[in-house]
Computed example of a mutant assay.
Amino acid sequence: MSEGTHPVTAVRRFNRFYTSAIGVLDRRYLGSPYGVAEGRVLYEIATGPGGGEGVTPKRIGEITRMDAGQLSRIVGKLERDGLVARRRSATDGRSIELSLTPDGAAMFAGFNQSSAALAEQLIGGLSAQERRSLVDALETAQDLLTPGERPPAPIVLRGHAPGDMGWITERHGVIYGREYGWGPGIEAVTARVCADFLEHFDPDREHCWIAERAGERVGCVFIVKDTAPETARLRLLMLEPSARGTGLGRRLVEECVRFSREAGYREIVLWTHAVLTAARRIYAAQGFEIVETWEHDEFGAMEVSETWRLRL
């Protein structure tokens, strides 16, 4: 994935490629008279717990996440076509089990052989090393996209590096535009803050924290010098939606307070807006207090701005 590609865009692009490559959109999947949904139901019946000798519709639904009504219609069609049979479960009289008829087993064997041939055709031009790389990539993708089976990667904080200021500017424009309807004014303000930080950076009195999870940037905040020598200014606290609810916002603000105390500042001030309720709760919890409010329309709509102050 290129650095500028959003993960959602990459996933959707791969979905389009792969569904076309394996013929998912064909009504006659793999040369059979059935579509991919019917083929998947045949697969689950053939390879289920009973190895073709019996699997419940409930279990098929759990595995495929198929709508119960759709699954019922597919099973009914396969029964009418003589490929699937049902019987009352020997262990639970309230449940039924599905199995393949001889015709169903023959149909599945054809499906299975055609599917394997198609996969081999897709990878036929790859070297042994490329095939190993493909297997690793597919297994990684499956692990990453399987919910609930692994703990989330830890979020780490680091200082700024080349490329971070462009990301900060871009994400402020996108997130605040999408969530609050702010116009290009927020991106312009953010770009000026980032440019000033880089041009006048004083490592003893200023700092930028970038939060990363598994190598992906998910948040940021700055401490910079204000006009008064004993006053620090907290700027550009921002979290990606994926990092919210993790305590990251509180952690970033705590880092700002710690750094400011160690740098010898006597107070921290910040500019925020009444609409940013989550950030305001974090500031209040750290002991910041509102000292000034005013209105402006710099971002395209009338907003209530606030100055907050924390005495150190």
Rank of each mutant, 00 (worst) to 15 (best):
P7E: 02
P7T: 06
V11W: 08
V11F: 10
R12D: 10
R13E: 13
N15Q: 11
R16D: 14
S20Y: 07
S20V: 10
V24K: 01
R28I: 01
Y29A: 09
L30K: 10
G35V: 06
G39T: 04
V41T: 00
L42F: 11
L42V: 02
Y43G: 03
E44R: 12
E44K: 12
E44M: 12
A46G: 05
P49H: 06
G50T: 02
T56W: 07
I60H: 03
A68F: 04
G69C: 03
G69Q: 08
Q70I: 04
L71Y: 10
S72W: 01
G76E: 13
V84Y: 07
S89Y: 02
T91Q: 15
D92I: 03
G93R: 12
G93D: 04
S95T: 11
T101P: 04
P102C: 06
D103Q: 09
A109K: 12
G110P: 01
Q113C: 04
A117I: 04
A119T: 10
Q121S: 13
I123F: 08
S127C: 10
Q129Y: 09
E130N: 05
E130S: 10
R132Y: 05
V135W: 09
V135M: 11
D136H: 12
A137T: 09
A137L: 11
P147M: 11
R150E: 04
P151E: 14
I155M: 12
V156L: 11
H160C: 06
A161L: 07
A161I: 02
P162A: 12
I168P: 00
H172K: 08
V174N: 11
V174E: 14
I175Y: 12
R178P: 00
Y180F: 15
P184D: 14
E187C: 05
A188N: 02
A188M: 11
A188I: 08
A191N: 02
R192Q: 15
C194G: 06
A195R: 15
H200M: 08
F201I: 04
P203A: 12
D204R: 13
D204P: 01
C208S: 10
A211R: 03
R213H: 09
R213Q: 15
E216F: 05
R217L: 13
V221M: 07
T227W: 08
A228C: 09
L237S: 05
L239S: 04
L239P: 02
A243V: 00
A243W: 03
A243M: 04
G249V: 01
R250L: 13
R250H: 09
R250M: 12
V253H: 06
V253N: 06
R258M: 07
S260T: 09
R261W: 02
A263F: 10
R266G: 14
E267R: 15
L270K: 02
W271C: 07
V275I: 14
V275Q: 04
V275Y: 01
A279L: 08
A279M: 06
R281I: 00
I282H: 01
A284Y: 00
A285S: 14
A285N: 07
E289A: 05
E289G: 02
I290N: 03
E292G: 01
T293Q: 03
W294Y: 14
W294E: 04
E295C: 06
E295Q: 12
H296I: 00
E298R: 13
E298L: 13
V304Y: 01
W308C: 03
